[in-house]
Design a protein around this nucleic acid. Structure first.
Length: 564
RNA sequence: GACUUGGUAGCUCAGUUGGUAGAGCACCUCCCUUUUAAGGAGGUGGUCCUGGGUUCGAGCCCCAGCCAAGUCACCA
């Protein structure tokens, strides 16, 4: 890896510090007493403080200098004055160590006293400082001017996602998104725990990937010599726990789906699933709207959230619309009591793409997805989905073609999905078998039959309502980010291409050179044995000498190439 | 998977018809003791994404590829 000039300079400074007897990476605890935030909130002139963080900007004016120190809570101005730091004859700590050997990005600790500058800035007067960690790579340095305009912003998404650590250091608004993300998780936990529901963990490596229709990642367990799948959902395991006697269980689950990536799909994503015994989906709707109202307030301090052009209000309650009502409203077509053929014709008339493999449920789902879904901006429950689309959901108490299912739509997208859970083991087996038929027809997302899950149901599961929430999508709404990558610390990226150390020609030449005894050859001999054209030879040998892998020397006996 | 746009210094970006690769910030040297995006003077810094091709000559034109973003398709 070729180092830039700036990186070489910093490495040299590291060595110089060591030569001065200063460890650039000391092991000692640093006795921090406060943070930048506390200093500003609880400011009193002359107060002694010990703080630590990264040096983020410097304005050096000879024997004095202002700088900014950034810690986990923000930034605080610090004032380095030569006479304060170097009270004796030796002024090198200021002149050499501070001014010459520290860089922006270095972690330092500061002992000092608070004061206010003539322009009114709360500042730490540095009495002494300690290098805590030397940064060898220069950070991007965005700056904000007095009009609030950002200069040199670090904005390239590729670099920001690949080097999230740097993104977080220099872009405070990015850090804010992740703070809100954690607030959301904490808020949900609090809401559930206060109601007595129990947080659990279930397997991520599963012999049968169940609970959703999706293509799984496959891996292999060596000593068992069996395939294992990364989980696509945790539903079936949580229901086993309801069978086992828990009243309410929930889990934040990292799920993995081996499907396409775009700005709303990452191969791994986080869902929250909760199952509560003796409840139905009507109860769950109320629970859901109360939950989201609570979470929105905890995260943003208000139930309103801005998402692009929309302002969404999470204040409960939310409208409840059946799928049939939604379709009637946006297409004028009433699907109630219609045959499959009538619905197919209606879909075709509406310009919805259909094919012969689609059953009644799929057709209805297509019409809804195409014509209705995008219209629900404010949180809205869509209820009573076709049975065919919901193999884990209980049949509707009033209509055997439907299920007791709802999805919560926000800004035209689903963020929650819930059922009155199917607990009839015979019905469940038949639904799995119907899925198996779909798989045989080539649907690679059809569900597997999970016999152990059926066995669990046979022991009896109480009536239960369950709900899943897409955490990534929800936090996108709460932080106004249209891309899932902005709400994941480390979104999946294609691997960075490794810089090729040597070209094929260079490798060939180098191999011949190394094979020769003494690693030294006459240039003409080497050139001839490489068999390269003039142009390619020239490029190869220049490449090798440039990378200091070979050296060309002229002696009395002629031109020689030496391996270095 | 298709299409569109982009990839030039540590960061943000210019780069004319194909003719010696530029700016601001950062960095280095010197001066400067209460400043605040940017004090003054001077200087250093490049795999122009990669590989081919056209050409006397390619950052620029052509072909292929890599990576990213966006739109669409597919998918929860």
């Amino acid at each position: 890896m070729q180092l830039s000039e700036l990186e070489l300079i910093r490495r040299e400074k590291r060595t110089q510090l060591q030569n001065l007897g200063i460890n650039p990476y000391p092991a000692d605890l640093y006795p921090v007493t406060t943070t930048s935030e506390e200093i500003k909130q609880d400011f009193s002139e002359g107060k002694k403080v010990v703080i630590a963080g990264r040096l983020m900007s410097r304005r050096i004016q000879g024997k004095a200098s202002f700088a900014e120190l950034q810690d986990a809570k923000g930034r605080i101005q610090v004032y380095f004055n030569r006479d304060e730091i170097c009270t004796g004859e030796d002024k090198s700590k200021y002149n050499d160590i501070y001014k010459k050997l520290l860089d922006i990005g270095d972690f330092i600790g500061i002992e000092g006293e608070l004061f206010t500058t003539q322009v009114g800035e709360k500042t730490v007067l540095v009495k002494d400082f300690t290098l805590l960690s030397k940064a060898l790579k220069p950070l991007p340095q965005p700056r904000v001017d007095s009009e609030g305009k950002v200069h040199d912003a670090f904005t390239d998404p590729e670099q920001r996602y690949r080097q999230r650590y740097a993104d977080l250091v220099v872009n405070p608004h990015v850090k804010e998104v992740f703070i809100k993300r954690t607030k959301l998780f904490n808020a949900m936990r609090t809401f559930f725990n206060e109601r007595g529901y129990f947080e659990v963990e279930t397997p991520i490596l599963q012999p049968i990937p169940g609970g959703a229709a999706a293509r799984p990642f496959v891996t292999h367990h060596n000593s068992l010599d069996i395939p294992l799948y990364m989980r696509i959902a945790n539903e079936l395991y949580l229901k086993r726990l309801i069978v086992g006697g828990f009243d309410g269980v929930y889990e934040f689950s990292k799920n993995f789906r081996n499907e396409g990536m775009d700005r709303t799909h990452n191969p791994e994503f986080t869902a929250m699933e909760i199952y509560v015994a003796y409840k139905d989906y009507n109860w769950m709707m109320e629970f859901c709207e109360n939950l989201l109202e609570y979470c929105a307030k905890e995260v943003n301090g208000t139930t309103q959230a801005t998402f692009g052009e929309h302002t969404v209000d999470f204040k409960a309650p939310y409208p409840r619309v059946t799928m049939a009502q939604a379709i009637q409203k946006f297409t004028g077509f009433d699907i109630t009591d219609k045959t499959e053929e009538e619905i197919r014709t209606a879909a075709e008339n509406l310009g919805v793409a259909v094919d012969d493999t689609m059953g009644k449920g799929k057709l209805i789902d297509e019409i809804f997805g195409e014509k209705c879904e995008g219209n629900f901006i404010q949180p809205t429950f869509i209820t009573d989905y076709p049975k065919e689309m919901s193999p884990l959901c209980k049949e509707h108490r009033d209509n055997p073609e439907l299920t007791e299912r709802f999805e919560l739509m926000v800004c035209g997208k689903e963020i929650a999905n819930a059922y009155s859970e199917l607990n009839d083991p015979i019905d469940q087996r038949e639904r799995f078998e119907a899925q198996l038929k779909l798989a045989e027809k080539g649907d690679d997302e059809a569900m597997f039959i999970d016999h152990d899950f059926l066995r669990a149901l046979e022991y009896g599961m109480p009536p239960t309502s369950g709900m899943g929430i897409g955490m990534d999508r929800l936090i996108m709404y709460l932080t106004n980010n249209p891309s899932i990558q902005e709400v994941l610390f480390f979104p999946q990226m294609k691997p960075e291409k490794k810089a090729v150390a040597m070209t094929e020609e260079e490798k060939a030449v180098f191999k011949i050179l190394k094979a020769d005894t003494g690693d030294k050859m006459e240039l003409e001999v080497l050139k001839k044995s490489s068999g390269l054209s003039n142009k390619k030879w020239d490029k190869a040998i220049k490449g090798l000498t440039k990378n200091k892998l070979a050296k060309v020397e002229k002696t009395e006996d002629g031109l020689f190439v030496t391996a270095v």
